[in-house]
């Protein structure tokens, strides 16, 4: 029986979103999955379709560095980078940062090119609860590459009533 390490999970997530088609999980495999890995990212399927026009998103080349456990969803530091020479012939054209559960799934759309020198961005995002964060890059040859990482987001105990 297949064991679901984080890596195979991630692969399943990407398979799920590739081409906007959810691949059904086999029954025994599903029985082993934690609740957070339900046949994933259904919310993102239409968004992905808009971005890729139905083309497949291959796993790899894109790397997301984000804390496994974010202690506050208001500010989650993140670095996304793409393995690309960033030359005129071969570079990242567009980089998307997507969230599975935020009310607006597209966090950022980044335009870059050979003059950018390095396909990487460090920023801080908001996450409305524990979820997958997905990064998808469109290369200069039109191909799509991506990765997905699940992040646990906790709430604070010490609330503030002064509000905005």
């Amino acid at each position: 029986m297949m064991r679901h390490t984080p890596n195979t999970l991630r692969r399943r997530v990407l398979k799920g979103i590739a081409g906007g088609v959810l691949l059904p999980a086999s029954a025994p495999a599903r029985a082993q999955l934690p609740q957070s890995a339900r046949p994933p990212l259904a919310e993102l399927v239409p968004v992905l379709k808009d971005i890729t026009g139905g083309a497949a998103v291959r796993e790899g080349r894109v790397k997301l560095q984000i804390p496994k456990l974010a202690e506050n969803g208001h500010l989650v530091p993140l670095t996304v980078s793409v393995d690309s020479p960033m030359t005129a012939a071969d570079h990242v054209r567009t980089l998307y940062l997507l969230s599975e559960k935020n009310p607006r799934p597209v966090i950022a759309k980044i335009g870059m090119g050979p003059d950018t020198g390095r396909a990487a961005l460090t920023t801080r995002i908001r996450l409305a609860g524990a979820q997958y964060v997905v990064a998808v890059a469109q290369m200069s040859d039109g191909s799509f590459w991506g990765t997905a990482t699940d992040v646990i987001v906790t709430e604070t105990a010490c609330l503030d009533a002064d509000g905005v």
């Binding site: 500010l75 607006r104 090119g113 390095r118 920023t123």
Partner: peptide, 20 residues
């Protein structure tokens, strides 16, 4: 050299580090 379209999923007081 760099363009970003940002949404409400970016944290308050936006911070970006990138390259050229």
């Amino acid at each position: 050299v760099f363009r970003a379209e940002l949404g409400s999923g970016i944290a308050a007081n936006p911070y970006l580090q990138f390259y050229f």
